[in-house]
Design a binder for these strands. Sequence first.
DNA 1: TGTACTGTAACAAATAGAATTACAGATGAA
DNA 2: TTCATCTGTAATTCTATTTGTTACAGTACA
Lengths: 137, 137
Amino acid sequence: MNNAKFATALHILSLLDYSKDEQLSSEYIASSINLNAALVRKEISNLKKLGFISSREGNGGGYSLTRASSGILLSEIYFAVRQAPLLGRTNSPNPACTVGRQINTHLDNLYAAAELSLTDKLKQQTLADFTKNFDPA
Amino acid sequence: MNNAKFATALHILSLLDYSKDEQLSSEYIASSINLNAALVRKEISNLKKLGFISSREGNGGGYSLTRASSGILLSEIYFAVRQAPLLGRTNSPNPACTVGRQINTHLDNLYAAAELSLTDKLKQQTLADFTKNFDPA
DNA sequence: TGTACTGTAACAAATAGAATTACAGATGAA
DNA sequence: TTCATCTGTAATTCTATTTGTTACAGTACA
């Protein structure tokens, strides 16, 4: 995870939670994140598929949360943007070597356990918990 | 962490632990990982600085572990190769926006807590624990 | 003195990520 | 009905990161 997807997704969702009653445009969101509006729409398209966000096209349209932020776990957001193993990819080692032949199995187990401890932690906090950190000013 | 550094480092250290009494050459290690020998030497140069490995130049030279594998925590290996925040980088949001101005502080806190839960997990296992998973065949 | 190594730098290639542009389609309002 | 304002999405370029390659100086054993 060397990209900014998690930060971007959480920023988007925080904004939508923070402005619960309005539809926010991709342009507005993009200017808050300081990112291209098309990229925002792309990331939102992913978050829509997963049911976090709904959109309205056309004049006056925009985005809003579909679920209560108090029910959205940060771990769900993590899974929504996760695209690669947390600890990086593995190599394609030499099967003729005792260590090479077995290491990816052991790495996979280790990575799974490590990632689980991280997601367990993220499970303890909701989007609502996160957004209530923000000072209204 | 979208690279294979952790897997590579752990592979190198596993080999050295597995062949405790011999000096292994970068060529040998590279062929087990299926990686270029110069890259192996480069990663080893990092692990040397941190005291995990010592080397001997010249004919018959190579690499060996300097510390007992039972005293090397997997969390130490993680820190040795860590180069970016685990959950990815943050954006450079708009300071004129209430959310934008504050989000990186909150993200940093969250990232720190999440990473800690992962490293705590890795702390529970040593290199020796890891290598004893390997069947000798 | 030759051979087998490490150490390291310079460079090239491949891949991934981010940014840009463009435009079709939807929708509300004048 | 027509205009302006949006979303949705694809195509493309740009940039950074990661990996791979080559080369060669320096070290040490035989």
